[in-house]
């Protein structure tokens, strides 16, 4: 019933201290913008690692002199493995041809080599879910047991690096998000605490006239949520400006940045996150209201 009046009180208070409140909104916006940037970085790292399975392959180098039947039996055996998506046989001649293609103008390196030094091989594409360190290691260990396979190569170090980069990015971003969220809560907490002390006399009178905790708290919680929400809206504007500068200005000089993707779906969440953090800050600032 008193919510309308609480809104009026909150808006009056916000207007009375408009410059301090504007400063709070901008600080909250800066915090939420940092969270958005963090999510942008993590989102792109995640996308890059998701693209990895399509490019990742395990190479099996075969012993020389295997018959067609023996090679066919190895491929059949590999295809039975649940982790395998595709297995492609590369004959010695084909391997040399591919190498020449890769070397292009530098194919003089191969001049003077009479005999093809490359072994026949099988290139294996694994299923998406199997492209992780544990599964690949297990798979490599299994296929090493197959006779006639000279060597298994799968870029263990590369996989490890990607895994640790992803892990570090996730841990770092989570810490940053927690710190920034705590910062936003603290800004709301301080602003509401100051507003509360400024109106301490008035609140004491309200209590003596029979005001409930809800009546006393409501205007401050509304103030906190408005500060948080406007901080969220301002951070949304900053993120849009960042997107515009990055994708229209910076990519003109550094085209490779075009592969980056901006997580637009996080945008509408910013005012809501701001609002919730604002409410959190206000509730902590008000603490327990005592009547006697």
């Amino acid at each position: 019933m008193y919510l309308l009046y609480s809104f009026r009180l909150a808006l009056q208070s916000l207007w009375r201290e408009k410059w301090i409140n504007l400063l709070s909104v901008l600080t909250i916006a800066a915090g939420l913008f940092m969270i958005t940037l963090t999510l942008f970085v993590v989102y792109n790292i995640d996308l890059a690692t998701k693209r990895l399975p399509a490019r990742f392959s395990v190479m099996l180098y075969l012993n020389d002199g295997l018959s067609e039947q023996e090679t066919g039996s190895i491929i059949a055996q590999l295809k039975k493995n649940n982790a395998v998506e595709q297995a492609r046989y590369i004959a010695k001649d084909k391997a040399l041809e591919e190498l020449k293609g890769v070397l292009k103008n530098a194919d003089y390196i191969l001049e003077g080599i009479d005999e093809n030094p490359l072994p026949a091989s099988i290139e294996i594409k694994l299923k998406k879910e199997s492209v992780n360190i544990a599964s690949v290691k297990k798979f490599a260990a299994e296929i090493k047991k197959i006779k006639s396979i000279a060597e298994v190569e799968y870029g263990e170090q590369f996989l490890n690096s990607i895994h640790s980069i992803k892990g570090m990015a996730k841990a770092g971003s989570l810490s940053l998000i927690i710190i920034m969220s705590a910062g936003v809560i603290f800004v709301c907490y301080s602003t509401i605490k100051i507003a509360f002390y400024r109106r301490k006399e008035e609140i004491e009178t309200f209590k003596l006239l029979g005001a409930t905790r809800g009546f006393i708290r409501a205007p401050f919680v509304i103030e906190g949520s408005v500060l948080g929400m406007f901080g969220g809206i301002a951070s949304m504007a900053a993120a849009l400006a960042f997107y515009h500068v990055l994708f229209y200005k910076v990519t003109a000089t550094i085209p490779i940045l075009k592969i980056l993707v901006f997580p637009f779906e996080t945008f509408p969440a910013l005012p809501i996150v701001g609002l919730l953090l604002g409410i959190g800050g206000a509730v902590i600032a008000l603490g327990r209201i005592r009547f006697s």
Partner: peptide
């Protein structure tokens, strides 16, 4: 109970010495 205090206070009108 402390939470009942506001409801009892609504039954008591007070003319404060310092007006408030």
């Amino acid at each position: 109970k402390e939470s009942s205090i506001p409801f009892l206070r609504r039954n008591i009108g007070v003319v404060f010495q310092d007006f408030r």
